[in-house]
Every structure is written in structure tokens, then in C-alpha cells.
Amino acid sequence: MGFWFKKNKEEYPDFWKEYEKLFDRKSKKSTFKDVRFVAFDTETTGFDYDNDRILSIGAVGIKNKSIQVSDQIEVYLEQEIFKESTVEIHGIRKHGSLLKLSEKEALRLFIAYIEDAILIAHHANFDKKMVNKALQRNGLGVLKNKILDTAVLFKKTKHLVYHTNSPVHYSLDELCNDLKISKSDRHTASGDAYITAIAFLKIVSKLFRNKKIELKSLLR
């Protein structure tokens, strides 16, 4: 894409400018104890970045090894694109009773909510790209947050011996089984975000058993 697609910064709405400003302060010293993490998940109409749409976003905050239930967001999006085939996975119907927001409003709430937290998602690349695509469709920039992938982190907990025989990608279900996490509420954005958060806490304590948790080594 050419540089002429790049928007002038002045044209961004206020909330986006606020959001970007949070990342201006360079090399802010923070520790695992006081940094805010946000585990999030999106439910979509499918896996095509260009043609599929986000139906809901769920996210929950984590601070100092505990999930803050009050620090959460759960939004449902009004979308023109709709696929009958995925309804049975996420259970969101086109004209269901849930209160739905426009994509733009939902993104605004999500961006205002996450602030500069370190994001956590399972197979984070997918969720990140879906969100970025949506942001761009609405004339906004891309996510600036650091993002951790529980699938990648989980692999680190496994001994090298197991790497050869193990799948390249651990699904969230496999992760749940291995970490003994109850799988209720799978396939709702908030439910998966919560499971991801629990998985993150379990993985972190496996990685740093009896050691102080270093944020730096986590982000590496």
C-alpha cells in the first residue's frame, strides 16, 4: 500500500489520540506486580481477515496474579456480514436479543478500555489482525499494545523433549485439558477471555516456579 493511504494524524478522533498518547512515554519502568494485563478474545463470522467480521469482543483485566472481574468489557457488534454456519459455535444470532453496538462504537469502547495494558490472547495473531482490520475499516490506526500469545507461552512450559511430538499449535481446548481448566463458556468472547486469563496465570506460575516473575523475560 502506498503512503497516500496513510491518514493525517489530525484526522483521528479524540479517543484514538488519547490512546496513542498513552504509548508516548518511552521505556516506562514497570514490574509484573503493577502492570495491567488484559486477556481478550473475539468471536467472528469466520477466519478470513478481509471478508469476515467480529461479532463480539470480551476482555478481562489481570493485575498482580489476580483477575479483576470488575475490570472487564463485553461488547456485541452489529454486522451486515453474517454466516449461518458459525452460529452454532458462538451462539450469536443475527437478530438475537443481545444489545448490539455499531462496529465503530464497539471499537471505541474497547480501545478506551484496554488503554496501554499488555494484551493476552490465545493464537493472538488472529485476534490482533481481526481487530486491526476492523480499526482500519473505521479509519483508525492499529493496536499499539504489546501482545502475548498464550499458545506460544504454553509451549515454553513444555520441555524440549516434548516439542518434537507435540502439535505446532495448541488449541485452547488442548490448553484447557493440559492445564486442567474448566471449559464452561467456551466460545463466548468473555468466556474464552476468562479461560485465557486463567491459562495465563497458570502458565506464568509454571514458567517462574519459585522465582520472581520477570516482565522482561515474559515479553521476550
Binding site: 470480551g58 472481574v69 468489557i73 463485553e74 461488547v75 456485541y76 443481545l98 468473555s190 468466556g191
Partner: peptide, 10 residues
Amino acid sequence: MKNTIAERIQ
């Protein structure tokens, strides 16, 4: 706002 997590805890 809907809070599925809180509902499950409840």
C-alpha cells in the same frame, strides 16, 4: 453492560 464472567461466578 453484560458481564458473562460475573454471571458464571454468581
